[in-house]
Design a binder for these strands. Structure first.
Lengths: 202, 202
DNA sequence: TTTTTTGAACTGACTGGTCAGTGCAAAAAC
DNA sequence: GTTTTTGCACTGACCAGTCAGTTCAAAAAA
């Protein structure tokens, strides 16, 4: 099927157009006409490729979180392969998260804006997709406890959620309110927090 | 003047109706008719009390963040008064944040969903209001560095943003995906992270 | 006391405009 | 010759904001 390549390219253009518009304005405030125009495509094409506006959005969410989890997992595996500790892997994942957000700020923005909304059509899609991302962090935390690197007392699901949140919000805040800072600055602030060098030492 | 009391009560009802609806559906997807109906008030009353839908929303934001900063500041001052350290004050603020979010989950949800959006009418209102909240945390961090409780190397604005983010996201995640956990569980997971007892002691 | 007036607060039907989604014939791409 | 895209007119639902009219408690007049 070569035809799927052309379709694929069109869908990609629509994703890119939709993600920035929805991040800026929100889902409801973004019109299908705007998305089509930004993508340089006729409105009919949107409906040829996606059943509806919300289906387009749901597939966009799946697409984006797929990229994120892949990049987190890769960072963690690369660290393990080169003989790093589990805490090193966490640190590498923090950096991977920051790099992702730096590359796809609009997607992150929209993900955060929609994640905790209830009563929306795509709410279940989001729950699944969130769990995939958080699970990557939980796995590393679990490994770290098994290896004795981290205390057995830590609460894995809550700590994983807090770590993800810390990275997400710190990165969005960096982009929105402190864009003059470098990725390395942000990374070391977060690293310091993770490694107990803020108020740590006990 | 009783009449101003009556107005006040109406406005309060409108805030309460709007906050849950907008948290669930987003600003654009929420209609003024819905807000009026939920508040048990005619549509005209909304426009008698607020110039427009977005003005209602902006005043709601100011109102809510006012409550939050007051509660953070109170927690910090109470700790200082009873002779606690600055790190104790940070810990107390984490708890105050959790209590606030527990009490006003809808407001928190909506705040997070809107905070990093650009190009919106209320974007500047939000920037101001965010700064007020973050500043409370920054002040305590600064004090802690001066007192020698925290290393001079920490980056105050970035660390403050990360801490706020950690609390915000952990709390929303708790409500949405792990509601069976207690506030104390969440508090101790975050506390442990702050005090370097996750991977800490270096 | 009783009646009348005042005005802030509130009401809800109505309007003008917007937008998701449809239908389809013709062109372009493959 | 099949798939994909285009362009564009159309519809029906929906919605922000308006406005002429109503309510009622308290002040002023009788």
């Amino acid at each position: 099927m070569e035809s799927s390549t052309r379709r694929q390219a069109t869908r990609q253009k629509l994703y890119e157009a939709a993600v920035t518009l929805i991040a800026e304005q929100g889902f409801s405030a973004t019109t299908v006409d705007e998305i089509a125009e930004r993508a340089g495509v006729a409105k009919g094409t949107v409906y040829y490729n996606f059943a509806s506006k919300s289906v387009l959005f749901e597939e966009l969410l799946r697409h984006g979180v797929g990229l994120l989890t892949a990049s987190l997992r890769e960072a963690s595996e690369k660290t393990a392969a080169s003989g790093g500790s589990k805490v090193d892997a966490l640190d590498a994942m923090i950096r991977a998260g920051l790099v992702f957000i730096d590359r796809y700020p609009a997607f992150t923005q929209l993900y955060v804006a929609e994640l905790w909304r209830t009563n929306r059509a795509w709410q279940s899609t989001l729950a699944v997709v969130r769990q995939e991302a958080v699970a990557v962090v939980e796995d590393v935390l679990r490994g770290a406890v098994e290896d004795g690197e981290l205390s057995e007392e830590i609460d894995i699901p809550l700590t994983a959620a807090a770590l993800v949140g810390m990275v997400l919000v710190a990165a969005l805040d960096w982009q929105a309110f402190q864009p003059e800072r470098s990725l390395d600055d942000v990374h070391s602030a977060l690293s310091r927090l993770l490694q107990g060098r803020v108020s740590g030492g006990r």
